[in-house]
């Protein structure tokens, strides 16, 4: 992992119990906020963005959402990840009129536009793999999740 995107056990949640998309986004925001990665305004903005430009991706067996927003609400680039105890519906990026049941949510806090391109490409590629998603889904704690992500970067 490139050292300029923070990936830490403190930013990981496993088997989050949630039924509403907003609760998932708030939980991930809290993690990022506590570590000083994002500003207070990040939450409001990311909720609004998800409403206008949803980020649910239909991949197959497991689906993901990749909420993110503009750099001005970010202090430090970081990745916060949660697996969900039960899938939570997100609207689809390509077909916002449709919902997709999401298993894993990856919240990206990006400080610079067009920055970290290489590592972002790797991250996106990694989450496209159903094998990786399956092992993330089965992980029992934050440490395991971090290990899976690091070994696939």
């Amino acid at each position: 992992m490139e050292k300029d995107i923070l990936l830490d056990e403190k930013l990981i949640i496993t088997n989050l119990r949630a039924t509403e998309q907003q609760d998932v986004l708030k939980s991930l925001f809290s993690k990022l906020h506590k570590e000083g990665c994002v500003r207070d305004s990040f939450l409001e903005n990311i909720l609004k963005r998800e409403e206008n430009f949803p980020t649910g991706l239909k991949l197959g067996k497991y689906n993901i959402a990749i909420p993110h927003t503009e750099p001005q609400f970010v202090n430090k680039s970081a990745l916060a990840v949660t697996t969900l105890e039960k899938p939570v519906n997100f609207r689809r990026m390509d077909k916002p009129e449709e919902e997709v049941p999401v298993d894993i949510v990856i919240m990206l806090a990006l400080k610079e536009k067009n920055d970290h391109l290489k590592v972002l490409g790797k991250i996106i590629q990694m989450f496209q793999s159903s094998q990786v998603l399956e092992s993330l889904k089965k992980a029992n704690n934050s440490k395991e999740i971090i290990e899976i992500i690091k070994s696939n970067l």
Binding site: F53, E70, K113, L120
Partner: peptide
């Protein structure tokens, strides 16, 4: 293009 112009548009443009 994408909503924020920071992530998915950049990935797709690269591809």
């Amino acid at each position: 293009v994408c909503g924020a112009g920071t992530l998915t548009s950049v990935m797709a443009a690269q591809g």
